[in-house]
């Protein structure tokens, strides 16, 4: 465990906590993409299936349980508890466009042709595009609640920090993870516009509004 990965995981955790707090506080899931949350749930379930047969550490197990349960809880909040606040008419990104390419990539680029490896690779590719419905929704509405913006920012920082983690692990352990490394680069690139607007507006105390 190095500092980049640890901070990345904390930031990932923070993003989810921020989102739950926002939904509960405002009793509304307005501005949050259900599709993105659904895709993350799919990411976690397909990736952490190894919790039953591959023990890494207590930290690892705890975090896996946290990510799966908290994301499913968000789905519950959006689908059941605060259902009326979520407007499906602005959450229109076609998730097939993310799921299908991820499935194809998983079948071509993986660490071995076993169900576990293919699901793992699928989850990594899927994660790199899972934010798209949320960013698309943001673009349609043109502005967002401060907390939604912080949520997306924390999520972006998480994957960004995994890049130095991979470089660090390559240098210190001589080990490479090309699939996750490449997927992290793609994911971070998707956030670049968002980061730019976050920096120029939110950091200066202005409302998050798209130009």
């Amino acid at each position: 465990m190095n500092i980049f990965r640890f901070l990345a995981d904390l930031s990932h955790m923070a993003s989810i906590v921020i989102l739950i707090l926002q939904i509960r506080k405002t009793k509304s899931a307005a501005g949050v993409s259900y599709k993105t949350q659904f895709l993350y749930a799919l990411v976690f379930v397909t990736r952490y299936i190894d919790i039953f047969f591959h023990y890494v550490s207590l930290y690892n197990t705890f975090m896996k349980i946290f990510f799966v349960t908290s994301t499913i809880y968000i789905l519950y909040l959006m689908r059941v508890q605060y259902k009326p606040s979520h407007d499906p008419n602005i959450d229109t990104f076609r998730i097939e466009y993310i799921i299908a390419p991820s499935a194809v990539l998983a079948l071509i680029i993986n660490h071995g042709y076993t169900l576990y490896e293919i699901l793992w690779s699928f989850s990594v590719w899927l994660e790199s595009g899972a934010i798209l419905p949320q960013l698309f929704m943001l673009q349609r509405t043109g502005e967002a609640e401060t907390l939604t913006v912080h949520y997306i920012f924390a999520l972006g920082i998480y994957r960004l920090l995994y890049i130095p983690n991979w470089i660090y692990r390559y240098v210190t352990e001589g080990r490479v993870e090309p699939i996750a490394f490449l997927a992290s680069l793609i994911q971070t690139a998707l956030y670049s516009d968002f980061f730019y607007i976050y920096y120029t507006k939110v950091m200066q105390g202005k409302k998050f509004e798209l130009p």
Binding site: V56, N60, F67, H111, G112, E117, W120, N165, E173, E177
Partner: peptide
């Protein structure tokens, strides 16, 4: 499986 370093991460 040496390639699958990512399996010890989240």
């Amino acid at each position: 499986n040496n390639g699958a370093v990512g399996h010890d991460e989240l």
